[in-house]
Protein backbone atom coordinates (compact mmCIF):
# COMPACT_ATOMS: atom_id res chain seq x y z
CA UNK A 1 0.00 0.00 0.00
CA UNK A 2 2.77 2.39 0.89
CA UNK A 3 4.36 1.72 -2.47
CA UNK A 4 1.17 2.81 -4.18
CA UNK A 5 0.28 5.75 -2.00
CA UNK A 6 3.74 7.25 -1.65
CA UNK A 7 4.53 6.74 -5.29
CA UNK A 8 7.61 4.52 -5.00
CA UNK A 9 6.57 2.94 -8.27
CA UNK A 10 5.24 5.97 -10.05
CA UNK A 11 7.58 8.82 -9.19
CA UNK A 12 10.70 7.67 -11.06
CA UNK A 13 8.66 7.45 -14.25
CA UNK A 14 6.75 10.68 -13.84
CA UNK A 15 8.20 13.47 -11.69
CA UNK A 16 11.87 12.88 -12.52
CA UNK A 17 11.02 12.68 -16.20
CA UNK A 18 8.98 15.86 -15.95
CA UNK A 19 11.73 17.72 -14.12
CA UNK A 20 14.30 16.60 -16.66
CA UNK A 21 12.19 18.16 -19.42
CA UNK A 22 11.12 21.47 -17.92
CA UNK A 23 14.46 22.59 -16.50
CA UNK A 24 14.67 25.12 -13.69
CA UNK A 25 12.78 28.32 -14.41
CA UNK A 26 11.81 31.20 -12.21
CA UNK A 27 8.23 31.23 -11.06
CA UNK A 28 6.76 34.67 -10.95
CA UNK A 29 4.10 35.71 -8.46
CA UNK A 30 3.16 38.59 -10.77
CA UNK A 31 1.16 36.16 -12.87
CA UNK A 32 -2.58 36.96 -12.71
CA UNK A 33 -3.28 33.39 -11.56
CA UNK A 34 -1.60 34.23 -8.24
CA UNK A 35 -3.86 37.24 -7.71
CA UNK A 36 -6.95 35.21 -8.50
CA UNK A 37 -6.08 32.45 -6.08
CA UNK A 38 -5.11 34.90 -3.38
CA UNK A 39 -8.40 36.73 -3.71
CA UNK A 40 -10.30 33.47 -3.63
CA UNK A 41 -8.48 32.19 -0.53
CA UNK A 42 -8.80 35.45 1.37
CA UNK A 43 -12.50 35.60 0.53
CA UNK A 44 -13.01 32.08 1.74
CA UNK A 45 -11.06 32.69 4.95
CA UNK A 46 -13.16 35.76 5.68
CA UNK A 47 -16.33 33.77 5.13
CA UNK A 48 -15.19 31.04 7.51
CA UNK A 49 -14.17 33.53 10.19
CA UNK A 50 -17.44 35.40 9.91
CA UNK A 51 -19.83 32.49 10.35
CA UNK A 52 -19.44 32.74 14.11
CA UNK A 53 -21.68 29.81 14.87
CA UNK A 54 -21.63 27.45 17.83
CA UNK A 55 -20.01 24.22 16.61
CA UNK A 56 -16.29 23.45 16.36
CA UNK A 57 -14.65 22.43 13.09
CA UNK A 58 -13.69 19.07 14.58
CA UNK A 59 -17.29 18.20 15.41
CA UNK A 60 -18.22 18.65 11.74
CA UNK A 61 -15.17 16.70 10.64
CA UNK A 62 -16.19 13.81 12.86
CA UNK A 63 -19.78 13.83 11.69
CA UNK A 64 -18.69 13.82 8.05
CA UNK A 65 -16.20 11.03 8.76
CA UNK A 66 -18.94 8.92 10.30
CA UNK A 67 -21.13 9.27 7.19
CA UNK A 68 -18.30 8.25 4.87
CA UNK A 69 -17.19 5.45 7.19
CA UNK A 70 -20.71 4.03 7.31
CA UNK A 71 -21.66 4.42 3.67
CA UNK A 72 -18.54 4.56 1.55
CA UNK A 73 -16.18 2.09 3.20
CA UNK A 74 -14.49 -0.96 1.72
CA UNK A 75 -17.94 -2.52 1.27
CA UNK A 76 -20.68 -0.22 0.03
CA UNK A 77 -24.13 -0.51 -1.54
CA UNK A 78 -26.54 1.67 -3.48
CA UNK A 79 -28.85 2.36 -0.58
CA UNK A 80 -26.10 3.59 1.74
CA UNK A 81 -24.46 5.72 -0.94
CA UNK A 82 -27.74 7.37 -1.87
CA UNK A 83 -28.34 8.13 1.77
CA UNK A 84 -24.84 9.65 2.12
CA UNK A 85 -25.47 11.78 -0.96
CA UNK A 86 -28.48 13.25 0.79
CA UNK A 87 -26.80 13.68 4.16
CA UNK A 88 -23.57 15.34 3.04
CA UNK A 89 -25.09 18.41 1.35
CA UNK A 90 -27.26 18.98 4.42
CA UNK A 91 -24.21 18.75 6.68
CA UNK A 92 -22.26 21.05 4.37
CA UNK A 93 -24.96 23.67 4.55
CA UNK A 94 -24.98 23.45 8.33
CA UNK A 95 -21.20 23.76 8.38
CA UNK A 96 -21.35 27.09 6.59
CA UNK A 97 -24.07 28.33 8.98
CA UNK A 98 -22.98 26.90 12.32
CA UNK A 99 -19.20 26.54 12.42
CA UNK A 100 -17.16 28.58 14.86
CA UNK A 101 -13.64 29.51 13.83
CA UNK A 102 -11.89 31.46 16.59
CA UNK A 103 -9.08 33.97 16.03
CA UNK A 104 -8.39 35.97 12.90
CA UNK A 105 -6.73 35.58 9.55
CA UNK A 106 -3.68 37.70 10.35
CA UNK A 107 -1.61 35.16 12.28
CA UNK A 108 -1.07 31.42 12.62
CA UNK A 109 -4.59 30.07 13.04
CA UNK A 110 -4.87 26.30 13.14
CA UNK A 111 -8.66 26.36 13.47
CA UNK A 112 -8.88 28.32 10.24
CA UNK A 113 -6.52 25.90 8.50
CA UNK A 114 -8.65 23.00 9.65
CA UNK A 115 -11.88 24.74 8.65
CA UNK A 116 -10.58 25.22 5.10
CA UNK A 117 -9.67 21.58 4.90
CA UNK A 118 -12.97 20.33 6.29
CA UNK A 119 -14.79 22.58 3.83
CA UNK A 120 -12.84 20.77 1.08
CA UNK A 121 -13.57 17.37 2.60
CA UNK A 122 -17.29 18.14 2.40
CA UNK A 123 -16.99 18.41 -1.37
CA UNK A 124 -14.54 15.56 -1.74
CA UNK A 125 -16.67 13.20 0.37
CA UNK A 126 -19.68 13.92 -1.79
CA UNK A 127 -17.68 13.29 -4.95
CA UNK A 128 -16.31 10.02 -3.57
CA UNK A 129 -19.82 8.82 -2.80
CA UNK A 130 -21.03 9.92 -6.21
CA UNK A 131 -18.24 8.03 -7.94
CA UNK A 132 -18.80 4.97 -5.76
CA UNK A 133 -22.51 5.02 -6.59
CA UNK A 134 -21.80 5.32 -10.29
CA UNK A 135 -19.35 2.39 -10.32
CA UNK A 136 -21.76 -0.50 -10.02
CA UNK A 137 -19.04 -3.12 -9.87
CA UNK A 138 -16.60 -4.40 -7.27
CA UNK A 139 -13.19 -3.17 -8.29
CA UNK A 140 -9.73 -2.94 -6.78
CA UNK A 141 -9.92 -2.90 -2.99
CA UNK A 142 -13.58 -1.96 -2.98
CA UNK A 143 -16.56 -4.22 -2.73
CA UNK A 144 -19.86 -3.12 -4.15
CA UNK A 145 -22.21 -5.44 -2.31
CA UNK A 146 -24.62 -5.81 -5.24
CA UNK A 147 -21.76 -7.00 -7.44
CA UNK A 148 -20.48 -10.32 -6.13
CA UNK A 149 -20.08 -13.84 -7.39
CA UNK A 150 -22.09 -16.72 -6.00
CA UNK A 151 -19.23 -17.42 -3.62
CA UNK A 152 -19.25 -13.88 -2.31
CA UNK A 153 -16.13 -12.76 -4.18
CA UNK A 154 -15.75 -9.33 -5.78
CA UNK A 155 -17.23 -9.23 -9.28
CA UNK A 156 -16.00 -6.72 -11.85
CA UNK A 157 -18.07 -5.58 -14.80
CA UNK A 158 -15.48 -5.02 -17.53
CA UNK A 159 -18.13 -4.42 -20.20
CA UNK A 160 -19.25 -1.22 -18.58
CA UNK A 161 -16.40 -0.08 -16.36
CA UNK A 162 -13.01 -0.62 -17.97
CA UNK A 163 -12.26 3.06 -17.63
CA UNK A 164 -11.07 5.64 -15.14
CA UNK A 165 -13.83 8.03 -14.14
CA UNK A 166 -12.50 11.60 -14.07
CA UNK A 167 -15.00 14.07 -12.66
CA UNK A 168 -14.78 17.66 -13.76
CA UNK A 169 -15.51 20.36 -11.23
CA UNK A 170 -18.27 22.60 -12.57
CA UNK A 171 -18.76 24.97 -9.64
CA UNK A 172 -19.75 24.79 -5.99
CA UNK A 173 -23.40 23.81 -6.29
CA UNK A 174 -23.52 22.05 -9.60
CA UNK A 175 -23.02 18.39 -10.41
CA UNK A 176 -19.58 17.40 -11.63
CA UNK A 177 -19.26 16.22 -15.22
CA UNK A 178 -18.04 12.69 -15.94
CA UNK A 179 -15.19 12.01 -18.35
CA UNK A 180 -14.30 8.43 -19.13
CA UNK A 181 -10.65 7.61 -19.71
CA UNK A 182 -10.63 4.13 -21.23
CA UNK A 183 -8.22 1.46 -20.00
CA UNK A 184 -6.89 -0.67 -22.80
CA UNK A 185 -5.05 -3.90 -22.26
CA UNK A 186 -3.07 -5.19 -25.18
CA UNK A 187 -0.94 -8.04 -23.95
CA UNK A 188 -2.72 -9.37 -20.90
CA UNK A 189 -6.38 -10.29 -21.05
CA UNK A 190 -8.51 -9.25 -18.08
CA UNK A 191 -9.55 -12.09 -15.87
CA UNK A 192 -11.16 -12.56 -12.51
CA UNK A 193 -8.90 -12.15 -9.54
CA UNK A 194 -8.61 -15.24 -7.42
CA UNK A 195 -6.87 -15.71 -4.09
CA UNK A 196 -7.52 -19.43 -4.03
Amino acid sequence: MQGLADGYFVIPYTIADYLARVGPARTDVQHPAFDDVKREVMGRNAMLLNVNGRRTVDSFHRELGQIVWDSCGMARNRQGLERALQEIPVLRERFWKEVRVPGNGEELNQSLEKAGRVADFMELAELMCRDALYREESCGGHFREESQTEEGEAKRDDERFTHVAAWEWTGPDSEPRLHKEPLTFEHVPLSQRSYK
Binding site: R54, T56, R100, P102, G103, L108, Q110, S111
Partner: peptide, 9 residues
Amino acid sequence: IEKGEEPIA
Protein backbone atom coordinates in the same frame (compact mmCIF):
# COMPACT_ATOMS: atom_id res chain seq x y z
CA ILE B 1 -13.40 26.89 21.52
CA GLU B 2 -16.84 26.15 22.92
CA LYS B 3 -16.17 28.63 25.72
CA GLY B 4 -15.21 31.23 23.12
CA GLU B 5 -11.49 31.14 23.94
CA GLU B 6 -8.59 30.62 21.55
CA PRO B 7 -7.40 27.01 21.36
CA ILE B 8 -3.77 26.14 22.17
CA ALA B 9 -1.66 25.97 19.02
